[in-house]
Design a protein around this nucleic acid. Structure first.
Length: 368
RNA sequence: GGUGGGGUUCCCGAGUGGCUAAAGGGGGCAGACUGUAAAUCUGCUGGUUGUACCUUCGGUGGUUCGAAUCCACCCCCCACCA
């Protein structure tokens, strides 16, 4: 159960093809992982996710711990069984909620004291608790407990945050997991080169099954995000998978692959779909609700082969979106997630065919 | 034919003398969204280039320094009674 590096792009970039074996199947990388925070990729049934080529999805420790609670998931036999997704699952540790729920928590030595965003109930989540929860969920890939450092942060703040995270990650490593669960460490250090390097080197010393780059896509400009990747991947072992957390736009994904990243997750395709924006294969976004599509009987994305684009017109989807029909959310979500999965599939293909440099230069990935 | 209630900006609807270009919804338009407190949130929505002027509250004519708001007549709508 581990990562195999299959091929390097050999075009001067650090792009690579690999595969990550887990108890629930093998993930071809570079891979996009749809986000299913509360045990569901919003609006998409597992069967649909399979049809559009999802290899692995995310779940979230914080959210699943609060609802439905560990006992209920354990009663089903684990998260895979509970949500009926027999393929790989990666669970985030709750570290992102330390960032996103900043107003509802207090950081302490061994973890974080939260007030539930649902009813205010107090509870404690640290590396010990997060590992115990993720062990019960029995996800294939477990994320170490970290603090996603907010942006902007001064060097001093980022350094202090990194110290806490490194301590928590070492503690995470010391916890017992199920035999085939893999544990990924998370590099922090905000936008500071020395901190990122230190973070990567310290994590490698601890030794993880894979390495994530966290603390990105938290409001910083794109060039900062990519610089962080530039500063980090050189210090991560070649033979381990790299996961860029929370990113990104299609262009950002391509650029991160070029810098040696293997795995991605992002809420963007699902959230934007529910808010009425569709990704276009030719580049850019289509505002589904816009009045100019009222009588557009063509497909949502003429270059897309997904069920939504094969079946429905822009005029109909706009109508559904405007009247608030659930089908609109499902169809545009399907399309957007399909787009991201297809993007990573094309990246894998390009690397295999030694055409990644060419692919990367396509106009749809140009700087806007 | 009689009695009562109404006609407000794209729609619904508040407003009964100055602080009203007119509350609040809806709709429309635009924008945001990156390990999901998000099927969410923000802004605009009479006209012209302004904290300025013009047009606007069924119609016409009055009262008043000032009217969507008061008066007269007219036109339409609704309910009930004949």
């Amino acid at each position: 159960m581990s990562f195999r590096l299959l091929k390097r792009a050999g075009d001067g970039s650090a792009a690579r093809r690999g595969e990550l074996a887990t108890p629930h199947g093998t993930v071809q990388t570079p891979a996009f992982m749809p986000v299913g925070t509360r045990g569901s990729v919003k609006a998409l049934a597992p069967r649909v996710l399979e049809e559009i080529g999802s290899q692995i999805i995310l779940g979230n420790t914080y959210h699943l711990f609060l609802r439905p609670g560990l006992e209920i998931v354990a009663g089903a036999g684990g998260l895979h069984e509970f949500i009926n997704w027999p393929h790989p699952i990666l669970t985030d540790s709750g570290g992102f909620q330390v960032f996103s729920l900043a107003g509802l928590r207090k950081i302490e030595k061994d973890g974080v004291r939260f007030a539930s965003h649902i009813d205010g109930t107090r509870f404690f989540l640290g590396p010990r608790e997060s590992m115990r929860i993720q062990r019960t969920l029995n996800s294939d890939i477990v994320m170490a407990f970290d603090e996603c450092t907010p942006y902007p942060a001064t060097w001093e703040t980022a350094a202090k945050s990194l110290d806490i995270t490194l301590r928590w990650e070492a503690m995470s490593r010391d916890q017992e997991l199920n035999p085939d669960q893999q544990l990924f460490g998370i590099v922090q250090g905000s936008v500071y080169e020395d901190l990122r390097r230190r973070s990567a080197e310290e994590l490698v010393k601890i030794g993880f099954d894979g390495y994530a780059i966290g603390g990105v896509s938290v409001g910083e400009p794109e060039h900062e995000m990519l610089k962080v990747v530039d500063w980090t991947t050189p210090f991560l072992p070649e033979e381990k998978p790299r996961y860029l957390m929370g990113m990104g736009t299609p262009r950002q994904i391509v650029e991160a692959v070029a810098r040696g990243v293997d795995m991605f997750d992002c809420v963007m395709p699902t959230r934007l779909a529910r808010h009425g924006s569709a990704f276009l294969t030719a580049g850019g976004m289509l505002p589904v609700k816009a009045g100019r599509y009222a009588r557009d009987y063509g497909p949502l994305d003429p270059d897309c082969g997904c069920y939504c684009c094969r079946t429905f017109s822009r005029a109909y989807l706009r109508h559904l979106m405007n009247v608030g029909e659930i089908l609109a959310l499902e169809m545009v979500s399907l399309h957007n997630v399909h787009y991201f999965l297809e993007l990573t599939r094309r990246i894998r293909e390009a690397i295999e065919l030694d055409r990644f440099a060419e692919f990367r230069n396509r106009p749809e990935f140009a700087q806007p």
